[in-house]
């Protein structure tokens, strides 16, 4: 049973992700952030619902759309924002940027610029967890697009044969850039009621479930079973979470492939709105939730200030950190 504190912490993480992403969107439009940025707004229930089960020693692998996973795992948002600004005080000292934020201390093994590449890394981290016998688990977040990468399919097989403590979380946000997931993944009509890569997992010998990815408590419940199974040494699972990204694939995406009506339709089931309604129905007073929202906004503003006041790295730092020794 979820305690009220835990529920409010989940709500806080969801609104913090949203506040962070909305602000990054503005900053990008204003030309204050360089590079490629992929925003997670709309998908908060997935990251938060799953990572709420994780503990120290567990790991996740992430994607190019990684800010939400970072925040859910507890990566400091000041460092993240400074990283997006390319500053020395960034999580990765300005060397990674949006697509490469990692913080192993909190179990975040890295966002990734290569679609599907987190799969094999997650297999390795789960192998290490199993080898140590620590009961630690690994979560591999990957989108619907990644499900057709060989790396992911090979990883499903490896996780299954080695019975690894690994949870594959599919974030089906309906589009691989512009290609609808309906068009990218053919499923067996015989068993398909809802189109789902969950059916593929079964073929690999991995139990799976399709989840409403806009409902954080539904994700939480599904993840609970998968994480418990992994911790008990019973092997991998797959959660296929149906969700939606509010912004384009990347900042600057003209979004010619979907209609405003479609976006509005999904926003009616906004994960934060849904969760807030549930909390209020459960007796949480609105003011408490408003305070949490205000706190998140202030933290994001503080992060922006921190980032903009931070210095850029010295040019000489381009040549360090290739290896553990100075050679490059």
């Amino acid at each position: 049973m979820l305690t009220q504190d835990k529920l409010l912490e989940m709500y806080y993480k969801m609104v913090l992700i949203r506040a962070f992403e909305d602000r990054v969107h503005e900053l990008f439009v204003q030309g204050r952030i360089p590079g490629f940025v992929h925003l997670y707004a709309g998908e908060e229930a997935v990251a938060v619902g799953v990572t709420s089960h994780l503990r120290k020693g567990d790991y996740i692998t992430s994607t190019h759309r990684g800010h939400g996973h970072c925040i859910a795992m507890g990566v400091d948002i000041k460092g993240m924002m400074a990283e997006l600004f390319g500053r020395k005080s960034g999580t990765c000292r300005g060397k990674g940027g949006s697509m490469h934020i990692a913080d192993f201390e909190v179990g975040m093994l890295g966002a990734n610029g290569i679609v599907g590449a987190g799969g094999p890394l997650a297999v390795g981290a789960a192998f290490a967890a199993k080898y140590r016998g620590s009961g630690d688990v690994v979560v591999c977040f990957a989108g619907d697009g990644a499900q057709n990468q060989g790396a992911v399919l090979e990883s499903l097989n490896a996780a299954a044969i080695w019975k690894l403590p690994l949870i594959f979380v599919v974030e089906d946000n309906q589009y691989a850039i512009s290609l609808r997931s309906l068009s990218s993944t053919k499923l067996q009509p015989r068993i398909s009621t809802a189109r789902s890569v969950a059916e593929r997992a079964v073929a690999f010998g991995i139990p799976s479930v399709t989840v409403d990815g806009m409902d954080v408590l539904a994700v939480y419940e599904a993840a609970k079973a998968a994480v418990e199974r992994a911790r008990a040494g019973e092997g991998p699972s797959l959660l296929d979470c149906k969700t939606y990204r509010y912004y384009g694939h990347f900042e600057g995406d003209p979004m010619v492939y979907r209609s405003v009506e479609e976006v509005e339709e999904w926003k009616k089931r906004d994960p934060i709105k849904l969760f807030r309604e549930r909390l209020v129905r459960g007796g949480v007073v609105e003011e408490v939730l408003d305070d949490i929202r205000r706190k998140a906004s202030l933290e994001v503003e503080e992060a922006v200030r921190f980032a903009e006041e931070s210095p850029y790295p010295e040019p000489s730092e381009a040549y360090t950190d290739v290896f553990t020794d100075p050679y490059y």
């Binding site: 094999p120 890394l121 390795g124 981290a125 290490a128």
Partner: peptide, 24 residues
Amino acid sequence: RVVDTPISETAFIGAGVGAAAAGL
């Protein structure tokens, strides 16, 4: 400690990377 892998170089080379990242 001595693991025969399937013929899936991406999975097992990548598993080596992930295991190294996680302390092995």
